[in-house]
Amino acid sequence: MPNSFFFNFNVARHQRELAALSAYVALLVFVGIVAPSFFNGANWRDLAVTNAPVLIVAIGMTLVIITGQIDISVGSQFAVCSMLAGGLAKMGIPVPLLLLLVPLIGAMFGAVNGALVAYFKMPAIVVTLATLVIWRDALRWITEGAWVQGLPAAFQWFGVGQTMGQAVIVIVAIAILFLFRWALRNLGAGRAVYAVGSDAEAARLAGVNPPQVLLSVFMLMGALTGLAALLNSIRFSSIPSNSGLGLEMKAIAAVVVGGTAITGGRGTLIGTLIGTALLGTIGTALTFAGINPFWEKAIQGAIILAALASDIVFSRLRSADFGFGKQRNATIPVGRAK
């Protein structure tokens, strides 16, 4: 067999991505039959623009989850970064500089989480649970619900107009996706992320510095959240103080549906892209299909469970082929720092 891209493609290795993809295709076929008007250019454009910031956050979340950690504070970080982006823009800071500044602020928020997790060896879920509450309530306290209004004209769509601005948002998201995909596969730093997630002790013996990797990953998570907040903010002419509520659940669900193992060490960004697309399309698809929005949450939950169950089905199929599959641990602790 020639070792080309197509022949090298291993179905078993990408079972979860394929499961999510087939669910997505099934959803599209369903909507296509019930409401063909779903397939028009404007709808795809709107879906892409709406979900691009979620995708950027989910990319960061993929990195965090591959290292075996979790970050549930991204929604609060998103809200704070949005407000700060607006505040900075009103102070007259030019928009290109914001593209640098806001992710930097986000990285600082990420560094708080990262330092506590990596160097103080605190469990990520508890640290980020605390920062989730702290940032959100601090923001509520300071703003008292006031929105940032009267933004400079150059802020909305970066001053390049709606069509161009929308294109910029989507292109940036896709560019980041492929940049990180390349880095994860080809750079030493990218491989280190997987190594730490698979077995931190083995990674350390192999010359990787796990705390450093963890800190960097959390800082990247923060920076990407900041970028997502900025890109989301430029879509509108004002910035509300309560944005990003529930964003962490959205991102984690997208990552997991996309096949990344919550125990770390396994996952791809293409899977995350599919997961984000799947979960981000459901709401719109339901509206087109005329299904009552009351059921949306239940359907989302069912899809997460179905994605998990598909894993079992695949591995049962495999163990039928090869005899007994590898026994896995009965319990998989949350974000264990190995």
Partner: peptide, 14 residues
């Protein structure tokens, strides 16, 4: 043998 965090995230929604 599914991870509790994700299972209960699903049922949380469900």
């Amino acid at each position: 043998n599914l991870p509790p965090l994700i299972v209960t995230l699903g049922t949380f929604s469900l």
